[in-house]
């Protein structure tokens, strides 16, 4: 017998239709422009554009500094999350609230603030100068702003998992004779690992694409402290749309791969901790 497909709750066609429509006009169609534009280039031309020495130097800096920044954040972010969840200390609520500052503070503001701090005449820059460490206008400066940008990702992915952690697990480990460190190494850390890696990947992905907070402190010296997004801007300013688009394709492909990896990691986190975020 025939029967029209029915839904108990209303609005399926309307909401899904609108969702797809809006997704297409805001995201998918404009994004496809990048790939269509690049397809005008031959493969060898494309390869030439994305492998010029100056662009390659920018990849090295962008990816290298982003990886390093994400690693630093993984270590210190875990420490911060641990302290925030497991200890009480004065000012904890304030610290907890301010962790999200990089999400809320416009990147340009972060950029000029970090530059002012780490410039040779700034509070921290002047302290580091006698030690022979130059931060602002060097690759080190890029690293500093990428650490700033990525910090909340690790803390905020690890924190809820730590909060939900059953004390019984660690008590069981202790009752079986494990030392505190062994318990951490063999019980707690494996549980936190998927979340920690997710946080790391999120911080990494954000850092690779970051622009606003980096350009002020980087100094933007060709072959030394230029990041990849800046290369796109530079090409655009020279009206080299094809060149800019080719580099954008490289970045996009990288983001897609990372997005897939992050989705996989999040699925793993959910499975490993039995929690639905």
């Amino acid at each position: 017998m025939s029967r029209r497909a029915f839904q108990v709750l209303p609005g399926f066609n309307l909401t899904l239709g609108y969702t797809l429509f809006y997704l297409c006009i805001i995201v998918l169609i404009p994004l496809s422009a990048v790939f269509l534009k690049t397809s005008q280039l031959g493969l060898s031309q494309f390869w030439d554009v994305v492998t010029t020495p100056r662009v390659v130097a920018s990849y090295k800096l962008s990816f290298g500094a982003s990886l390093l920044a994400a690693a630093i954040n993984a270590v210190f972010g875990l420490g911060l999350a641990w302290a925030l969840v497991r200890y009480s200390f004065p000012g904890k609520k304030l610290v907890d609230a301010l962790i999200d500052l990089p999400f809320a503070l416009p990147t340009a503001v972060a950029g000029i603030a970090l530059t002012a701090l780490y410039a040779p005449n700034g509070w921290l820059g002047s302290a580091l100068e006698p030690l022979g460490i130059k931060v602002a206008f060097t690759p080190l400066g890029v690293l500093v702003s990428l650490v700033f940008i990525g910090l909340p990702f690790v803390v905020r992915t690890v924190q809820p998992i730590l909060e939900d952690l059953d004390t019984e697990l660690e008590e069981a480990a202790a009752s079986l004779g494990a030392r505190r460190w062994q318990t951490f190494r063999h019980v707690t850390l494996p549980i936190l690992l998927p979340a920690l890696l997710t946080g790391f990947a999120l911080a990494f992905a954000r850092a690779v694409g970051e622009y606003g907070s980096v350009i002020f402190i980087a100094g933007n010296i060709p072959m030394v402290s230029e990041i990849t997004p800046l290369m796109i801007i530079t090409k655009l300013e020279q009206y080299d749309y094809t060149g800019a688009t080719a580099i954008a394709v490289v970045m996009l492909l990288f983001s897609f791969v990372l997005l897939l990896a992050i989705n996989g990691l999040q699925a793993w986190t959910e499975k490993a901790t039995g929690r639905n975020r």
């Binding site: 017998m1 029967r3 029209r4 497909a5 029915f6 108990v8």
Partner: peptide
């Protein structure tokens, strides 16, 4: 209840077909 639809068959409430 009508919260789920059957692939085939009918539900009669008070003798009236309520499937739709």
């Amino acid at each position: 209840a009508g919260l789920e639809s059957a692939d085939g068959g009918r539900v009669l409430l008070d003798g009236e077909d309520a499937s739709d």
